[in-house]
Design a protein around this nucleic acid. Sequence first.
DNA 1: TCAATATGGTTGCTTAAAGAAACCAGATTA
DNA 2: TAATCTGGTTTCTTTAAGCAACCATATTGA
Lengths: 162, 162
Amino acid sequence: MARKRFDDSNCSVARALNEVGDWWSLLVVLHAMYGIRRFVDFQQELGIARNILCDRLARLVDNEVLKKVDVGEHGSRFEYRLTEKGRDLFPIVIALRQWGDKWNPAPDQTPLDLRDRETGRAILPVEVQDADGKPLTVRDVFVPEGSDTGIEKKTPDGKKSA
Amino acid sequence: MARKRFDDSNCSVARALNEVGDWWSLLVVLHAMYGIRRFVDFQQELGIARNILCDRLARLVDNEVLKKVDVGEHGSRFEYRLTEKGRDLFPIVIALRQWGDKWNPAPDQTPLDLRDRETGRAILPVEVQDADGKPLTVRDVFVPEGSDTGIEKKTPDGKKSA
DNA sequence: TCAATATGGTTGCTTAAAGAAACCAGATTA
DNA sequence: TAATCTGGTTTCTTTAAGCAACCATATTGA
């Protein structure tokens, strides 16, 4: 692949993608959220090559998205569990899921129906909201002067990047 | 890379990742949201190889995330603009950005300060919410019986996947 | 009018990552 | 004490990413 490294990027989206933005990592996290914890289970559920799974799990552990826990029980020895950082990917995964359900629905599949454990009611679509909870689109927002989007502006010609 | 195709996956997250889940696509979308529209600008801002950019733009157009518009003005001929489907990635990009800012802050960079154009107030963190707007973690939700997470359950041994 | 430049690519080569399958070592079970 | 399960590692092949050169069209500018 000869991939470009984003480690040193000044864009935190790029840095985030560097940790969980490859083909498998986010699917591993998703399955971890669904309760998968063991190597073989990830491997079978995802159909991922074992060496790649090894690599991804190790990287997710390095990046503190997962933690590797030694559980001494019968035959199974390790579990990969989400850290707080990993659980914090929840809105991203759900937003991705909702986007997929909305724009690429599988004919044979019902959209994800996630419900609040307490009330039993369905969750809302994940949105960007203003301070009052009003949904915002990309057109409703701006980056204040003096702040930074994290991408280089090149404004000699009057082009603006935000 | 010899990547696995997720086109036919019954998991909409996998299908979403198939469209925007590679290294560059989401960054292209991000920059489009910041106002970038032209081939050369994407190329310079992202530092992406031109053939890869070609490929990604074409795929994003194919997937109707971007549309290619012929603008006959001086020298520049095409613009790549977000479609509604593309703009709908806003929560995902922002959530990713906020996650990156929170967990991998760049020492020299302030977190993204996005503000509502109308009120001038900062946006909220992107969250999963219940019907009342109460934030939910992955631990607060469940998948009702009869619904489907989109991953295969393998429950002969009592393991549950949701 | 003709050269210089910008735009939006394409082509060919090299490098590196993904995938498949075989192999392996420690622990458990039978 | 052999079979099995676990969580890997190794080797090899395939494919995509990155780089740099090239190219056709359109515009400017002298």
